[in-house]
Design a protein around this nucleic acid. Structure first.
Ligand SMILES: [Mn+2]
Ligand SMILES: [Mn+2]
Ligand SMILES: [Mn+2]
Ligand SMILES: [Mn+2]
Lengths: 220, 220
DNA sequence: AATATTTTTTAGATTAGTTTAAATTTAATA
DNA sequence: TATTAAATTTAAACTAATCTAAAAAATATT
């Protein structure tokens, strides 16, 4: 197994997230946008990663992870999410404060550390944003979830995750009282803009725009 | 306050450790040896650090930390030692396993993280090797300690720290049953090689060479 | 199909950190 | 004090990662 630099690790992660779990090839521009760099840098790096056999790449055709690359990306994501759990559960961070620190912690190299951390946290299956935590072999169990926006009137479910994990969005979730595990029922849908009136835990009623309801994920 | 790269942080730490808490100037070669690089690299870097006002440097005269530089070095050491406590106390790492991981973790940038970690651990005063943990202002309280080798026959004390924190030395400490907090009494000193027969906790008796007794620190 | 636009790649330069080899300064010794 | 040895600095070159600008390829539009 090849050894990657911190920068290379971030490229792998970006490609993983942009490819929709390996489904479609990722464009140079998309990667550049995601990791805040130039398309020229991405072109260079992608060639380098292809030489290391962690991505499949043909010029002008975009890039995707190899099996090896996917496993490596998922091991980094595993670390990211385990650290997020630690920060929230143990160090009482708020779920909108953990991402930037986890971006740093995910690059710490120590198999023992991450094994012990997993154990210490009681082998959590999801991170504070409801995202599943891959296992040590770089395997992930993704259950397809509905967006709140796809629910019809009178339908209900459990809030399982958020798509948008930006601090702004998470703070807004807090403000309106939406949290993971909450019971939600769609009371009314405004046909004009697809905004919803929803009921949280059979009590509080709030209005959410379509932009918001598309970023809330539901299980039933 | 200037912002330093990971590499620059390691230089500061090396200079701190080699200067004996700022007492004497540190030579280019000594730094090169400590951080496994070439004297040429050190010369370059030291000029760079002087420009950033974290070290005082005159060509051919060696280098030392400024007040600002000392504070920064101590904040990194604070992080290193707090993480070591976390690894041993919470994640059940052995005291000979923590150093390399702490070398990575000490560079994580998040004041909130380190503040919460400190709190989580109960504001520890010493790391697993008996070294004092600096406060958040970059201040450290160093109590002068005796080496075991300086004790005379029949004198005793408490083992407070180890000077050598290499895995080999620490494993040897385990093997002979030496641990922090143990009561130790010097039973006999061999004049020829200054080796000692010592008694641990008024029970077990062992022999230690001068090389070993010089690396064990005592309080009374 | 021809032209225009967008995307991607290449070329050349830049920065941080490093190395080797040569030059210089300091320290040691005869 | 003169010479030698050791330590230190400078010079030149290298790698990883980045950027700007220009060239090339792919798409979209007339
Ligand atoms: Mn995150
Ligand atoms: Mn997350
Ligand atoms: Mn250490
Ligand atoms: Mn330590």
């Amino acid at each position: 197994m090849v050894k990657l630099s911190l920068v290379e690790e971030n490229y792998l992660k970006a490609i993983y997230h942009l490819s929709g779990h390996g489904q479609e090839n990722v464009s140079t521009n998309a990667i550049a946008l995601q990791i805040q760099t130039t398309p020229a840098s991405v072109s260079d790096m992608v060639r380098k990663l292809a030489k290391k056999k962690v991505v499949e790449y043909t010029k002008y055709q975009g890039v995707n992870l190899t099996n090896e690359g996917t496993k490596m990306a998922l091991r980094i994501i595993r670390k990211h999410r385990l650290w997020e759990v630690f920060l929230v559960k143990e160090l009482k961070f708020h779920w909108d404060q953990v991402h930037d620190v986890a971006e740093q912690l995910e690059h710490i190299q120590s198999p023992l550390l991450i094994q012990r951390l997993d154990e210490y946290l009681g082998f959590p299956k999801f991170d504070p944003h409801g995202d599943p935590i891959p296992n040590e072999h770089g395997e992930i169990e993704e259950k397809p979830k509905l967006t709140l926006s796809s629910l019809k009137e009178c339908e209900s479910g459990i809030i399982a995750a958020v798509k948008d994990t930006s601090a702004e969005f998470l703070k807004y979730m807090d403000k309106i009282g939406v949290y993971l595990g909450a019971q939600v029922t769609v009371m009314d849908i405004e046909q004009f803009d697809r905004s919803q009136e929803i009921e949280i835990d059979g009590a509080k009623r709030i209005f959410v725009s379509k932009q918001v309801s598309e970023n809330i994920l539901i299980t039933q």
